[in-house]
Design a binder for these strands. Structure first.
Lengths: 124, 124
DNA sequence: ATCGAAATGAAATTTCTTTTCATTTGATGG
DNA sequence: CCATCAAATGAAAAGAAATTTCATTTCGAT
């Protein structure tokens, strides 16, 4: 456990929803200025493999968020401005552990709802 | 309507599930060999905006598929080999048109199930 | 056929991510 | 407390995916 990792982990755990590696880098740098972006990528990769972070493939850069118990949520992605809001309710039937299709064993899921955020519906 | 677009549209409409721009390019080239990858990107973007294609952000390159009525489906993404299978059943409650969270208006959704495909569970 | 706007393709560029490699760090045992 | 050494780091370079630029071509309406 190095200072670099600690900085990344600290920032990520404070994230509620969907930060890009660059955003995490910018924030973690405040604590640890010599931190390289590469290390952020490597640490995030590590956390994903350990199940501590989730990776979100959305339009634009890959985003990450912590996988805290009891904080399962989905995402509302604005098609106009690209903003992302969490949606606490889970809208799907439990699928983890189930088997589908051609004997495909499910271990996780990801649901994104696309549409238009409040700002974009009613511009200031 | 140009020959290039026709080639891309023809290939895309034959796709059932999740092709990358490069794959579409390779196939469309068989009909129209001077077709550039750039035009494939541009045409796919156009089709997405017209609601004729759906864009899938998954690990790796962005994938595309036609949005044919009555063919709504989700994806089983193998975490081991990266293969993608369609899942015809829709597991979520209808959300199109509904409003969630901070007055977010939903127009579409995307569900991906992650896990391990038959091949990867029981290697040959 | 002719014209003009829209579309095209090649090349260059940008964005995001990963690899390489010399240097630094930190846990471990003396 | 310090020496050791594998693991981790960061800078630079490389690589993948997607976009922009711009001169040329194509389509379709005269």
């Amino acid at each position: 456990m190095t200072a670099s990792r600690r900085a990344v982990i600290q920032v990520l755990s404070a994230v509620q929803c969907a930060y890009s590696a660059e955003e995490i880098h910018r924030r973690a740098r405040r604590r640890h200025p010599r931190l390289g972006l590469v290390t952020v990528y490597r640490t995030l990769e590590l956390l994903v493999q350990q199940g501590l972070a989730r990776r979100l493939d959305l339009p634009g850069p890959t985003r990450y968020e912590p996988t805290e118990e009891g904080r399962h949520h989905h995402h509302l992605v604005c098609l106009s401005c690209g903003s992302i809001e969490p949606l606490q309710r889970c809208l799907i039937e439990p699928v983890e552990g189930a088997t589908f299709g051609r004997r495909f064993r499910v271990t996780g899921h990801r649901l994104e709802l696309f549409g238009y955020c409040h700002e974009c519906i009613a511009p200031a």
